[in-house]
Design a protein around this nucleic acid. Sequence first.
DNA 1: GGTCTGGGCGCG
DNA 2: AAAGCGCGCCCAGACC
Length: 581
Amino acid sequence: MRSVPHDLRILARGRDGRAVLALPGDDGRPVGIEHMDLDELPGRLAAVERAEHPRWVWSDARDHLPRLLAAGVTVERCHDLRLVHQILVHAASVPSDDRAALLAAAAWAVPIAEATAPEQEGAAALFDLEATGRPDQVPADLDETCAELSRQLRAIDGAQDPSRLRLLAAAESSGAIIACELRAAGIPWDVAEHERILVEHLGPRPSPGAAPARMAELAAEVREALGDPLLSLDSPPRLLRALHRAGIDVSSTSKWELEGIDHPAIAPLLAYKRLSRLLTANGWAWIGGWVRDGRYRPVYVPGGVVTGRWASSGGGALQIPRLLRPALRADPGWTLVSADVSQLEPRVLAAMSRDGEMARAGRGTDLYAGIVAAGVVATRQEAKVGVLGALYGGTSGDSGRIVPRLREVFPDAMRLVDRAAEIGEVGGTVSTWLGRSTPPADERWSAAQRAAHQVDATSTEQERARRSARDRGRFTRNFIVQGTAAEWALAWMALLRQELAAFEPVAPELAASGSGPLFSRRAHLAFFLHDEVIVHAPLSQAEAAAAAIRDAADQAGRLLFPGTEVDFPLDLAIRERAVKD
DNA sequence: GGTCTGGGCGCG
DNA sequence: AAAGCGCGCCCAGACC
């Protein structure tokens, strides 16, 4: 009834730590089985790659790829069974018995592993399994791999729109490769510049346990202004009590509540908080823990967020403060090509909903300016607040005032997100454009809704249930947009990676020092942040890399939304350092 | 000693 | 006052 795609090639774990290559047969059983030692694998795999350009089926990129990359070998395409399992097991478009079969294969649903800072790794362990944060849990032997592949192919083939799920599986799997490659290549990191920024803001590096000079000064000012000479600023409850004693009426110590209060303690306190954050999150300890040989090598976690966005594990790769962006710096003779998409999420919404009016507002560069130009609102700020309110479910304040206006002007777009919210509020499932679905509402949520519908429900129970229903509505409203934007970004990166891989290597004397065997002689992806990429490129390839980034964005739009009027303009810059403006 | 939770804040 | 989504990380405090 169904034939296995002919370009699949299986890489699995053999007995005694050996590797095994095979082809999936039409009956689901492996054929053409080859066993080999691990040190033979990169050479053999590279030969198959060159000759056949297969799609490699493996349990988990993290099982195999780090070792291959260290040996200078990578692959064009894969099918990552763990990631695709995670998608298919919830996908609403997959028939329920196929989903049940996947659910029964519970070992494929492994939790995200912790990252290990390089300082805790042996130097030789950098590319071992342990170092990639991957416990040995997924059943990766040949039979299990084939069985799971069969389940997944059946699930996709039986889905309402197999082509979308196939595209999603390919994009997600490509992300698995890219995440490993990003770690192997690393972010070129200028430690001297990072330290200069720390000293500029905090003062000289303090001895262990001591506070930096600037923080100590600010803390003294705060204690003086509050008349509390022994106060610790690092304990929110104590700080809150001290603020109350000083007559400052706040309900928390958070900065948005403190801002705007007129008291001599506030300015130094806010400054202290800012510095404290810099020190603890990205101070000298962070450099020592995460930067080695001029590279920051974060662990990216594709599919780590329910919506399909990537998460990161260790070092906070997706939360690097803007203040430290200048430390992201190209190697000598190289440059950074940085690009981010302007207003990705509203553009994705316009494309998904085929809202022509919204597509037209975005044509050119700035969607918010387009909304102003169309006469919908008076200022760019209002346009932005309104659109974010539409995407997030804002009801009060400025966004609550503006969203109804957007509902008149962009009826198709607003209907799509409003409908997603309605479905979520009653416990339903919504899906992204390519078919990633929300997990079912958890049992506590459903129990609260049931309780509120009993005849003897208290008003507290009813109010709590209404609130959690609205919470879930905002989640599902945002899910379809954030998740589809993540799909667009995956396609963008996958297409970009393909283009960069075709670049000619530069001369050996122009090689980057720390990017590893595969990436030191041609432009390569170095950083990814939801709607933003940075490519590290030899100077001679910078313009070509910029063109590739733009071309990949155009192609991604057409791939996901054939015939769409929506464009995806980029802010792009070629600079030595990744600073904005 | 360890683990867990919430506050707070960085990113999109 | 964070109004409105999704994260990770650090710290203090609570608890075992």
